[in-house]
Amino acid sequence: MAKIIVVTSGKGGVGKTTSSAAIGTGIALKGHKTVIIDFDVGLRNLDLVMGCERRVVYDFVNVINKEATLSQALIKDKRTKDLFILPASQTRDKDALTIEGVQQVLEDLAKEFDYIICDSPAGIEKGAQMALYFADVAIVVTNPEVSSVRDSDRILGILQSKSKRAEEGKEPIEEHLLLTRYHPERVAQGEMLSVSDVEDILAIPLLGVIPESEAVLKASNQGTPVILDEEADAGFAYTDAVDRLMGEERPLRFLEVQKKGFMKRLLGG
């Protein structure tokens, strides 16, 4: 039985697509057959972050409308074995998604894949609700600032009330908090919320803390998931998060203000 994981946040620009790409890649690296679906119909970012934008022929909406088969639309990742991408359409809008259509696609994918990652669009409207409706697990991406935390709280409420599991009275969606763009210096100066502040407000288990890093922007522009960057602490943090998602214990890293020579110490062993 495939596990459906939604990566969501409410607020835009917090790192949903970056996290979807990194976590999807991380799970595939562990040998699980994984597909990442871009639910952001009309904008289409995932293929750019994954560096496969030139290979998009058919998309998610084509499959829903039965204009293409799943195997035609799925793009196999060139770097990572067992990883596939189902891109979004740029010429449609979110109304092109229907519950029945999405359900059919997910059911078909579930026959072949172990993990299905749904990269949610921002907001709490139809697109976002469609992305989370069938989920078993939710990764709520949050930045350490009040508006992002408030929006995440709102999306947690929607996960508990408007998902399929909630509507059918089944076991609720497993919720995880992923804190991204964390800046220990600014936390120390009191400009940012700390990990414990955010945990206290949202009251869900912490999956990981991704430090603010130039490597993330660089990786996005190059079309390589940051988890593959073997020098970036953000990459290590994502690896830790994936390990925790798979049930392994990993201590939190990169929460302290970095001292000089940190990278050297890291690289020098």
Partner: peptide, 8 residues
């Protein structure tokens, strides 16, 4: 028994 979230 569960947290009451923003907007609920």
């Amino acid at each position: 028994t569960k947290p009451i979230r923003s907007g609920q």
